[in-house]
Computed example of a mutant assay.
Amino acid sequence: MRKITIRLLTKIPTKYGTTGMILIAALFVYGILGSYFIMHLNIIDSIYYSIITMATVGYGDYTPHTGIQKIFATTLALSGVALLAYVFNIMLTSFQEKMSEYSKGARKMKAIEDMDDYYIICGLGRVGKVVFDELKKRKQNIIVIEKDEEICENIEEGDNIVKFHKDASEDNIISRLAGEKCNSVIVSTGDDVNNLFIVWTIRENNPDAWIVTRASRVENIPRLKKAGANKVVSPEIIGGQDMFFESAKPYLLRITVKHNVDQIYDEFKVINKYDCSLETIDYHIPGVETPLTREINVTRLADGKKYYNYLQTHDDQRHALDTLYKTTNNIHSHLILGKDKQSFEDLIKDLKKIEEVVGINLTNKEIAEITREN
């Protein structure tokens, strides 16, 4: 307890402590000069008289007689009382504030100890806020570390939300929390240097932690991975991909088909014939609205041929894909990028010759109904 008290008292705000010391020094100088010139005491007695008067001890061995001496003694005593009250108030207020902080910190750590698992978010800017909302919507336990006081104040704490107004790049709390119960650490500050340091700090103390970090600049992605991030997400890349797909919508076709593994290459030859590229494949599990999506981004016929030959020589991979096709009743959707409407019309005609076309630009809900019936 004594150590805690000393730590609290030594953390009195600098500006208040400095002001108090200046006022004490000024009043002491005033007391010495007044005692010397007004009370007509020697320098040693002037120091002595100033101290006992400021401290309101007043032993009575030096008594003011004239009016000016009484005024001086009164002002020195009242100023001493006021100054002592001021300094004492600063110390008491600081002590109470620090005790309150320690108490809040203890309650937060107790709440975290009671959690079975949790996610940590470092930085609640635009990206971090989206992650926070998604986790909150799913009723996950969340620990937020945010250095911006205004943002931190707007976070409402609850049974599954704990916030810390701290800089994760300067405080070691992140290392203490990123232990076994931490599902993931999301590092989402807007500064790649801060993100790099936070990732490095976490990885140094928690080799098994799962770390996902934001990269504001693409060229920093390798550095963040080297520092220990498991996943690096770049809003710049994601935003660019979203813009590409939005701009390409008039030239995107989603065609839902039904065929087996042996028809993969024949299908791709038709897609390539009309200078189209296969962007993604959605595998539709019967009755489930959200499909399993696989990115392809294939444009060259040679790539399609290479993949087909790979399946012919790797039985385990072919068996896995064949199992997936059977699970989905061979129904899946292709997102195809083409150059114009006529290409799509010709493409659909040729595909109908080699496989069953279930529908064009169907929604996931519509496809779910079809697979449920099948």
Rank of each mutant, 00 (worst) to 15 (best):
P222E: 04
K273A: 07
K273F: 05
E267S: 13
L292G: 02
S277W: 05
Y251V: 06
D242V: 09
N230T: 04
K231H: 13
V261T: 09
Y251L: 14
V257D: 02
Y251H: 14
D303T: 02
N220G: 01
I264K: 02
P291Q: 06
E295R: 13
L278A: 08
L278T: 06
L278W: 13
A209V: 06
M243I: 07
S277P: 01
D303K: 05
A209R: 00
R223D: 07
G287T: 09
V288K: 14
R223Y: 12
V232P: 03
A248K: 15
P207I: 09
H259P: 03
K258P: 06
P291A: 06
S277H: 08
Q263I: 12
P291Y: 02
R217W: 07
K249P: 00
C276E: 03
T299C: 06
D208A: 10
V288F: 07
I281G: 00
S277N: 11
E236R: 12
K273Y: 02
V233Q: 02
L253Y: 07
R217S: 09
E246G: 07
T299A: 12
L301I: 14
E289I: 12
F244P: 00
L292Y: 11
A248W: 04
K231T: 14
E267H: 13
P291I: 03
I296G: 01
N260S: 15
S216W: 04
G287A: 09
I255S: 01
K258L: 10
L278S: 10
V288L: 10
K258Y: 11
V212S: 13
E289W: 03
N260H: 13
D275S: 14
K273H: 10
K231W: 06
E219K: 15
F244G: 02
I221Y: 04
L301E: 12
